[in-house]
Write a protein that binds this DNA or RNA. Sequence first.
DNA 1: ATGAAAGCGCTAACAA
DNA 2: TTGTTAGCGCTTTCAT
Lengths: 325, 325
Amino acid sequence: MTIYDVAARAGVGIATVSRTLRGSAPVAEPTRQRVLAAVAELDFRPSHAGTSLAERRHAANGIVFPDLSGPYYAEVLLGYEEAASQAGRSVIVLGTNGRPDPVGAVRDLAARVDGLVVLGRTVPDEVIGAIVDSGVPVVLLARPAVAGADALHTDNRRAAVALGEHLAHHGVRHARFLGSPEDSHDAAERWAGVHDALAARGTGLQVTGCSYDEDAGRRAAAGLLARADRPDALVCANDEIALGAIQAAEDAGLRVGVDLAVTGWDDVMAARHSRPGLTTVRQPMRTLGALAARALDDRITGTRTTPRSETLPTDLVVRASCGTH
Amino acid sequence: MTIYDVAARAGVGIATVSRTLRGSAPVAEPTRQRVLAAVAELDFRPSHAGTSLAERRHAANGIVFPDLSGPYYAEVLLGYEEAASQAGRSVIVLGTNGRPDPVGAVRDLAARVDGLVVLGRTVPDEVIGAIVDSGVPVVLLARPAVAGADALHTDNRRAAVALGEHLAHHGVRHARFLGSPEDSHDAAERWAGVHDALAARGTGLQVTGCSYDEDAGRRAAAGLLARADRPDALVCANDEIALGAIQAAEDAGLRVGVDLAVTGWDDVMAARHSRPGLTTVRQPMRTLGALAARALDDRITGTRTTPRSETLPTDLVVRASCGTH
DNA sequence: ATGAAAGCGCTAACAA
DNA sequence: TTGTTAGCGCTTTCAT
């Protein structure tokens, strides 16, 4: 079932079929009708590969996740897919987590899409640079800028400062940060903002390294809370860590929000259902995904030729876990 | 940058480059080395469209979601993407939710992939049938079977019966189902299972229609709980509805687990963090996704030629929301 | 307004 | 073992 079959059936040349289907040139109305009838009768759909090859485009965008799990990424993908498909592009997803050769996978992906979104620390800067140099537009999400690539961020800094000030108001004196600022740009900014706000009140903010899941949060918190000089606040790099920390506190017989403040980041669904409710920072994930798709579209269509960087606002969501008095 | 450039650089024909890269035929070692060197120097990556066209395959699988939001689908996608990429296939995602022409979108997707997974009620059976007839293998997930397509299910029935019996043990006398059995096959099975188990104890299970989000659950539950003959159990079609129902109960001053039982389905993260913890049914989402990818691979490679149907086990997860005595 | 034909970049059959 | 060449299905000049 090819364009030749349609042309034969309609008694025209293949060029006329192509013109009719794409509207790229005028076709006499009666001819047009014959072609459309043939297309309908044969249920013809143009071969994607053929079109791609001739048009030298893929009609597809890629998105690279460090790890697809978690509500964070699902929301970003949702916004991205919706906006990309409005621009007539499919979305190819790639998770780099348990993969033997992430760099190879990302480079292969780059060879089959018109543009690429890369989230977080999935591949080294040089790889991003090489992709950009090869002419494929790239948008970075929650990842330090790379020359030539667009970048989209959420305002970690401002929210972190607000969070630090809020904790200070609650009288926090001995706070601890759970996360890995050295591994993650986001975590580094979050730590720095809270740190600075607390430092202005003469309070420090030491770091306890912790990976980004509930279980790691529970274990790290359990260790800290067992110490004689236990902290009175656990500032967590994301909600999963914080929810684990809340559990550890409960296990240790401490009242979260009274004996101990716990905060997260992301405002996942569980944050508002946990008791006490988790104080956290909400980010516009869906919008982030949609903006990434649009930024890519601008670069692909050539509407914009210079890289751009944008930072989206965040909201501090105060619930009971950071103190109830 | 094409295979011709590489061939010229290595001083060989393009066929030799192709053979070297694909290992499809022996190439003398010195020649091979020259080709590989040229490939490396030029950073050559074969054009995906060219390969697709020549090989008549896409090296891509599709997956169609009714709606990408929610932890349920993210997990399925995770398992699917991992397994598909192990088979050397990329994953193209498509959400049909807010889309003007879901059927057209799905059919277009079917034309650019080697196989397709379809979740839930996204497109009518006829469309699935047409895709299958066009020669593209299809795996159905949580959706009634269609001739020629593989199907994967979770064991709604068994878990629902277990849930119904558990509720009966708690002495439930006036249960209500929140969800839309007429719209969703899953919901219908869940309702039927709980219904039958309760009916065996002389208890009914009426339905209150409700869409699958928290807010709808909250509103539906609020209406029911305000009635003079309020139910003593709310059996919800998924966790989101149940979490909304818990909120409604709290708003109404009722103690969940004491005055009222509430149950969900899916075991999302929030289910274990809510207080009281939500009694629910856990499904192996990730495995479901991975199995779908493997089923597709079998059909694509021709390892298997007849459609197959499989049902995965589920676990009843009892927490406090269904009764604490 | 329409058709013939030249690519687009690759694979594989065929020759050498 | 290697090169030449004919497609794969489409878009788009270039003639007519």
